[in-house]
Amino acid sequence: MRKWCFIQGVLLLLTILLASPASAAGTELMSVFSLRITVVEQGTEYEWEYDSPNKYEYEQGERVIKGDLAKDKMEHILEVLQFDENENVSSFVERLKQSDYPNLERVDIRYMDSDSRLHTWVWNKDR
């Protein structure tokens, strides 16, 4: 339940940020954050990207999607992961394997929070 509330909080925060006007002033860049999720399965690389305030991108192999469809893809992967910055990589890996990526080879998640702290989770099948 707590993780679901966190996901809802992240989505609410993303919605608030999307409704806010973008600005490049130095002090306002302090609140910028980003999320990168990379998954490799059977040699195909999948990548979800979010940059505040409203840039979404999804890549599957050579195919790149931006905009609302990429946002939908990001929301889906956050639900699958039950994303929580305090979670361990093994939990993320198990959730991915149980959902859309049973033959998972690699996971790399990088989250820059609003305090400019980088959180990183990396997992490789062979290690």
Rank of each mutant, 00 (worst) to 15 (best):
L29P: 00
V39M: 02
S116E: 04
E49L: 14
S52Q: 07
W4T: 15
D108I: 07
L17G: 07
V32K: 06
M112V: 14
R95A: 10
G9L: 11
T120D: 00
D68V: 14
G9E: 09
A70H: 10
I37A: 02
A24R: 15
D72T: 15
I65W: 04
A22Q: 07
V64C: 03
V80K: 05
V122G: 01
A22D: 08
A25H: 11
E59M: 13
G26N: 14
N124W: 06
E105R: 13
Q98D: 14
K73M: 05
F6G: 00
L81P: 00
V89E: 06
L12A: 10
L69G: 01
E47Q: 14
L12H: 12
V10D: 00
E85Q: 12
R63Y: 01
D115N: 12
A70Y: 07
E87T: 10
G67R: 06
D68F: 12
I77G: 00
S91Y: 01
E94G: 12
N103I: 00
W123L: 06
V80G: 02
T44K: 12
S90C: 03
D84K: 08
D51A: 10
I7Q: 05
M74V: 14
Y46A: 03
I7K: 09
E41M: 05
V40E: 02
R127T: 09
G67E: 04
A19N: 13
N54Q: 08
K71I: 04
P53H: 12
T120P: 00
Y58K: 11
K55S: 09
G61I: 08
Y46L: 03
V64Q: 11
Q82E: 13
G43V: 09
I77Q: 01
N54M: 04
R95E: 02
V10R: 02
W4I: 13
S114A: 11
